[in-house]
Computed example of a mutant assay.
Amino acid sequence: MVFQFNIDKHTKDFVPPNQVKRLPRALGYFLGNNDNGSKQRPDYFIWLEVLIGSFCGILVLEGVFRNPNIFTDHHNAPIVIASYGATAILCFNTNGLPLAQPRNIILGHFSSALIGVCVEKLFSLSEKGRDHYYIGGALSVGMASVLMSILNCVHPPAGASALLPFIDDGIRDMSWWYLPTHLVSSVLIVAVALITGNVIRKYPAFWWTPLNRTPPPPTQEPKEEKALETLVLNAETLQVPKSLSLSEVEMEVLESLQNKLRDYKPNTDSIGSTDIGQSV
C-alpha cells in the first residue's frame, strides 16, 4: 500500500544530501559508494556473504553486551535483544530493500522501543494496568506500526522491540536504558553490514531517502510578444507601433496614403516604375 503522506517530501529540503562521494575512495567504498549493485554474482558467493554477515552481526552484539559494561553492570541488559535476530535476517539477506536500510533499522527500532517503554510506564502506574500488560503489548505494537509508517522507517523486526517491555521482566527492569541499548545494537549491526555487505554487493541502497534531490528544471515562462516596432502601411493594413505617438494630422496623412495605395493601378509598361512596397 502506498500512503499519500510522505514525510520525506516535507523534510528533504532540510536534510543534507548524501556526501559519501566526497570521502576517500577506500572509505566511501564501504559506505555504499561502489558499483557492486550492478554486477551479477553467483548465488554461492551471496550465500556465503549472508552466512558471514549474519554470524558476525549477532556475534558482535553478543560480544559487546556479554562483557561488563554500563548496561550489564547496572541495568541487566540481555546478551542480545531478541528482535535483532530478525533484523540480521532482513539486513543481510535483503540488503537492497528499503526495510533493511540504516534509517529503517536505527530509527525503526528506537521509535518502537520508545513507544514500548512509554506505554509500559503508563500501564505500570496501577495494579489493574499491570494485570493487563497483554493489552499494553498489543497497543504498543499497533502504535509503533503507525509511527514507523509516518516516519517512513518501517522495519518489521522493530515490532518485537515495542512488545518486549511487556513480556520480558529483564527488559522491563532496564526502564529507559532500554533505548540507548537499542541505539548501540542498531549502529553495531549496521556497521557489520557496511563491511560484509560491500564486498560483493552494495549496502546501503540509500542512507536517508530514495527520493531524487535534484531540483526540477525551471519552467520556462512563455515569452511575451514584443510590441510592434515597425510601421506597416499597405492597401489592406495600417499598423502603427504602440511606442510611436502620432497626431491626428499625421494619422490623416497615413490614411490618405493608404487610400491612394488602394486606388493605385501599376502600369507595367512605365519605365522606372516602382513597387511602392508593401510596408514603410
Rank of each mutant, 00 (worst) to 15 (best):
R22A: 15
A82H: 01
S149H: 14
L231Y: 06
L27E: 06
F166P: 00
I105T: 11
A144V: 05
K9E: 07
A144I: 05
W207I: 08
L233S: 01
G159R: 04
P42K: 07
L254N: 02
C91P: 01
E221N: 09
R66F: 15
K265Q: 12
V249N: 15
G37W: 06
L231N: 12
L183Q: 05
P78H: 00
Y44F: 13
A86S: 11
S186R: 00
Y133V: 08
N18D: 08
T196M: 05
L246Y: 01
L211Y: 03
G96S: 10
A235G: 09
N212L: 04
H10Y: 15
L114T: 10
R103L: 11
N104C: 09
N198Y: 04
L231D: 11
K121A: 12
Q101V: 12
V60M: 12
L257Q: 09
G170I: 12
S111G: 03
P210H: 01
G272R: 08
N33P: 02
G129N: 04
T209M: 09
R213W: 03
N104P: 03
L233T: 02
W208Y: 15
L23D: 01
A77R: 02
P241V: 06
A144K: 03
N76V: 10
K223W: 10
V15D: 02
Q239E: 14
T94I: 13
T196S: 12
S175Q: 14
G53W: 04
L238Y: 08
F14P: 03
I135L: 13
L261Y: 09
P68F: 07
P266T: 13
F65I: 05
P180M: 04
D43V: 15
S111R: 00
D269F: 09
L254G: 01
E49W: 10
D35E: 13
P266W: 14
I135Q: 06
F65D: 03
K128Q: 12
Q101P: 12
L23H: 06
L59H: 10
G37Y: 07
N18L: 04
E252P: 08
G28H: 01
W47E: 06
V50C: 12
R103G: 11
S243H: 12
F65L: 13
E252V: 15
S38K: 12
R172M: 08
H75R: 00
D35F: 06
L211P: 00
H182G: 07
V80P: 01
V232T: 14
D131P: 04
C153M: 03
T214P: 10
P215A: 08
H182T: 11
G63V: 03
G96T: 09
G197K: 01
G96E: 07
R41C: 00
M143G: 08
A193T: 10
L139T: 05
S175H: 09
S124T: 10
A26L: 15
S175T: 11
F206T: 00
K265A: 09
H75C: 08
L122I: 11
G32Q: 06
Q19V: 14
